[in-house]
């Protein structure tokens, strides 16, 4: 078994400011989190709002640093924490695609080669050279997902991305995710929709009381 993501004694404390006195006080978000995720598996991450799911994903994608403990990550990571982060309304779809791909670590040649597929999957068609502010929110999302998932990354970190868009596109997203999983991509996904989770996940982790425990999907 190859290990894809491994967390050991992971803790994260935020420094918050007391609104009255202005004094900083520590707010512990994660406390001694341990887990192992095998390569090629799809794991759901469950927990209530504010349980620390996004914090955990951010730590794994190296956006914020843990206060103590460590995570080891093997392979390229496609962070789908917020699809379309970095999109600019005043640029066209094509220009945004180029920038977004660079942010995701996709090589320019790779993007060019796959560009038609990306546009086909996103169903943007004639709007490629239209400014993004003319796009509907669904179109932006489709474009972003299409770029991010064409990369064939080793690891996907997804935060509430499957319940957006119409049902038809949701299904295609789901199929794309399952395809990637088949080809050996490790997926860690936050999704509140239990039905969706059951369809794609092998197992689930539950974040509660600042720590992680295993649970059924």
């Amino acid at each position: 078994m190859q290990v894809s993501i491994q967390a050991k004694h992971l803790c994260k404390t935020y420094q918050l400011k007391d609104p009255v006195t202005g004094r900083p006080y520590p707010f512990q978000c994660l406390d001694d989190v341990n887990f192992v995720i095998e390569k090629g598996s799809c794991v759901g991450l469950k927990g209530q709002n504010g349980a620390g799911k996004s914090t955990l994903l951010k730590i794994i994608s190296n956006i914020i640093r843990p206060s103590s403990g460590h995570v080891s990550v093997k392979g390229t990571v496609a962070p789908m924490l917020d699809l379309g982060a970095g999109f600019h309304d005043e640029l066209t779809g094509r220009e945004n695609a180029f920038i977004y791909a660079s942010l995701m670590g996709i090589k320019r040649g790779e993007l060019k080669r796959q560009f038609d597929d990306i546009i086909d999957f996103a169903e943007i068609g004639a709007f490629v050279d239209t400014k993004l502010r003319r796009y509907s929110s669904g179109m932006k999302f489709r474009l972003a997902f299409s770029i991010a998932s064409t990369l064939k990354p080793d690891i996907i970190l997804a935060d509430e991305i499957l319940a957006i868009g119409d049902e038809e596109f949701q299904n295609r997203c789901l199929n794309r995710i399952l395809e990637l999983k088949q080809s050996g991509t490790t997926i860690l996904i936050v999704q509140h929709n239990e039905v969706l989770l059951k369809r794609i996940c092998d197992r689930a982790l539950l974040l509660a009381n600042k720590t992680v425990s295993h649970c059924s999907v």
Partner: peptide, 10 residues
């Protein structure tokens, strides 16, 4: 690509 993320910056 192998990466260890901890509070120490390498």
């Amino acid at each position: 690509m192998f990466r260890i993320i901890s509070n120490k910056v390498n």
